[in-house]
Amino acid sequence: HTCEKCSTSIANQAVRIQEGRYRHPGCYTCADCGLNLKMRGHFWVGDELYCEKHAR
């Protein structure tokens, strides 16, 4: 898989955010504040991922 955020190959663990879309665990972050979304879930606003606070 290729990380959709940093565009590099994912060798080990990948986070599947949608069918066919993956990120490194470290790239699974809010587009606004950079908070890691692991164990928090994500919210779509347009084509970007946000934490609950910044999705509003």
Results as ranks from 00 to 15, higher is better:
residue 1 H to M: 15
residue 2 T to S: 02
residue 2 T to Y: 05
residue 2 T to D: 05
residue 2 T to K: 11
residue 3 C to T: 02
residue 3 C to G: 00
residue 3 C to S: 01
residue 3 C to N: 02
residue 3 C to V: 00
residue 3 C to A: 00
residue 3 C to Y: 04
residue 5 K to H: 06
residue 5 K to I: 15
residue 6 C to Y: 01
residue 6 C to P: 05
residue 6 C to M: 02
residue 6 C to D: 08
residue 7 S to L: 10
residue 7 S to H: 07
residue 7 S to E: 00
residue 7 S to F: 08
residue 7 S to A: 13
residue 8 T to Y: 14
residue 8 T to L: 11
residue 8 T to A: 15
residue 8 T to V: 14
residue 8 T to H: 14
residue 9 S to Y: 00
residue 9 S to M: 02
residue 9 S to L: 01
residue 9 S to F: 00
residue 9 S to V: 03
residue 10 I to S: 03
residue 10 I to G: 05
residue 10 I to P: 05
residue 10 I to D: 11
residue 11 A to C: 03
residue 11 A to W: 01
residue 11 A to M: 03
residue 12 N to L: 04
residue 12 N to W: 01
residue 13 Q to E: 14
residue 13 Q to V: 05
residue 13 Q to M: 07
residue 13 Q to T: 09
residue 13 Q to L: 04
residue 13 Q to P: 07
residue 13 Q to R: 01
residue 14 A to N: 11
residue 14 A to C: 08
residue 14 A to K: 04
residue 14 A to Y: 07
residue 15 V to T: 11
residue 16 R to Y: 12
residue 16 R to T: 14
residue 17 I to A: 05
residue 17 I to H: 01
residue 18 Q to G: 10
residue 18 Q to R: 10
residue 18 Q to E: 11
residue 19 E to C: 03
residue 19 E to G: 04
residue 20 G to T: 09
residue 20 G to W: 03
residue 20 G to I: 06
residue 20 G to L: 03
residue 21 R to E: 06
residue 21 R to T: 14
residue 21 R to A: 12
residue 21 R to W: 02
residue 22 Y to E: 11
residue 22 Y to I: 01
residue 22 Y to M: 02
residue 22 Y to V: 05
residue 23 R to C: 06
residue 23 R to L: 07
residue 23 R to K: 05
residue 23 R to E: 05
residue 23 R to A: 09
residue 23 R to S: 06
residue 23 R to Q: 03
residue 24 H to C: 15
residue 24 H to Y: 05
residue 25 P to M: 13
residue 25 P to S: 13
residue 26 G to Q: 15
residue 26 G to L: 14
residue 27 C to T: 03
residue 27 C to A: 04
residue 28 Y to W: 13
residue 29 T to V: 05
residue 29 T to S: 09
residue 30 C to P: 01
residue 30 C to A: 00
residue 31 A to T: 09
residue 31 A to S: 09
residue 31 A to M: 12
residue 31 A to N: 13
residue 32 D to V: 06
residue 32 D to I: 06
residue 32 D to E: 08
residue 32 D to N: 11
residue 32 D to P: 01
residue 33 C to D: 01
residue 33 C to R: 00
residue 33 C to K: 01
residue 33 C to L: 02
residue 34 G to L: 08
residue 34 G to N: 13
residue 34 G to V: 03
residue 34 G to I: 05
residue 34 G to W: 01
residue 36 N to R: 06
residue 36 N to W: 04
residue 36 N to S: 11
residue 36 N to K: 03
residue 37 L to M: 08
residue 37 L to K: 03
residue 37 L to I: 05
residue 38 K to F: 03
residue 38 K to R: 04
residue 38 K to C: 06
residue 38 K to H: 07
residue 38 K to E: 15
residue 38 K to T: 09
residue 38 K to M: 10
residue 38 K to I: 01
residue 38 K to A: 14
residue 39 M to V: 12
residue 40 R to Y: 08
residue 40 R to T: 11
residue 41 G to R: 07
residue 41 G to K: 08
residue 41 G to E: 07
residue 41 G to C: 04
residue 42 H to T: 12
residue 42 H to D: 13
residue 42 H to P: 10
residue 42 H to L: 14
residue 43 F to T: 11
residue 44 W to G: 13
residue 44 W to D: 12
residue 44 W to R: 11
residue 44 W to H: 14
residue 45 V to W: 09
residue 46 G to K: 12
residue 46 G to E: 12
residue 46 G to T: 07
residue 46 G to F: 02
residue 47 D to N: 09
residue 47 D to S: 11
residue 47 D to Y: 07
residue 47 D to I: 09
residue 48 E to C: 06
residue 49 L to V: 10
residue 50 Y to W: 08
residue 51 C to H: 01
residue 51 C to V: 00
residue 52 E to G: 10
residue 52 E to W: 09
residue 53 K to A: 07
residue 53 K to E: 15
residue 53 K to D: 13
residue 54 H to K: 01
residue 54 H to G: 05
residue 54 H to S: 03
residue 54 H to I: 01
residue 55 A to M: 10
residue 55 A to V: 08
residue 55 A to E: 05
residue 56 R to W: 05
residue 56 R to P: 15
residue 56 R to V: 12
